[in-house]
Design a protein around this nucleic acid. Structure first.
Lengths: 117, 117
DNA sequence: GCTCATACTTACATTCGTGTATGTACCTGG
DNA sequence: CCAGGTACATACACGAATGTAAGTATGAGC
């Protein structure tokens, strides 16, 4: 999802995928939908993600304007991440996709992913 | 999007992203929503995709059950791709995402993608 | 016999995404 | 003085995803 130039998109879906694409961003958005979370809380809320990748994703999403980063100058440090209105709107737009996934979860899990290459 | 083992998902959104993830599958689904297309037509309908990548994506989507491949034994060869009901349902679920992208297209295009790394 | 068109296949190269392991800064508490 | 906790940064590496370029098969038409 990293680009060296200003992108142009063929359609809205293309643009949306560029913003929420990748394995984690959708899950991060969903984790934050009920309110702000600290870095450590987010890491626990998104099982399987590594610290490094989580940071990279958060940075990207901050740059794209999906979320807000609030630093509290304390020791030990405290940083809270929350959705911007932009992020909320994307979350709303992704909701049907999440429902679709849940509806067809069984079918999706039985897909022979190792035969797709 | 290729996996060596049977996957399990943390939520529906995770599963949905695994199915429609990547740069192209969403666009291919959208291109096919109005009816079947031949390989060459699809290539023109999805600007920027290479033949090889298009084939790989189509193979994957056939395996996941999103689309159907119909071969006509002619010369020159003719192959038509069409959405299955499963593919149609995913397409419907992605529609709000496409609308969101179009609504915010200007904002998305001005995102400094090269500063996200 | 040569070219054309379509729908691929194959070989190779490159970039991207993701992951592991380790180090850093800061103050607190023992 | 040393360990602990938080939120990172940095170095390194692997495999997946994507791309480029070329070749294949078939029969039609000239």
């Amino acid at each position: 999802m990293k680009e060296t130039k200003k992108r142009t998109f063929t359609c809205g879906l293309d643009a949306a995928i560029a913003v929420m694409g990748g394995k984690w961003k959708g899950l991060i958005l969903f984790a934050l939908q009920d309110g702000p979370l600290r870095f450590g809380e987010l890491r626990r809320a998104v099982p399987g993600i590594s610290e490094r990748v989580l940071i990279l994703q958060l940075r990207e999403m901050e740059t794209t304007g999906l979320l807000h980063r609030e630093v509290y100058h304390q020791v030990p440090p405290k940083v809270e991440y929350s959705l911007t209105p932009f992020g909320h709107s994307l979350n709303t737009a992704m909701a049907p996709l999440g429902e679709w996934g849940e509806e067809h979860l069984e079918r999706i899990e039985t897909i022979p992913w190792d035969q797709t290459g």
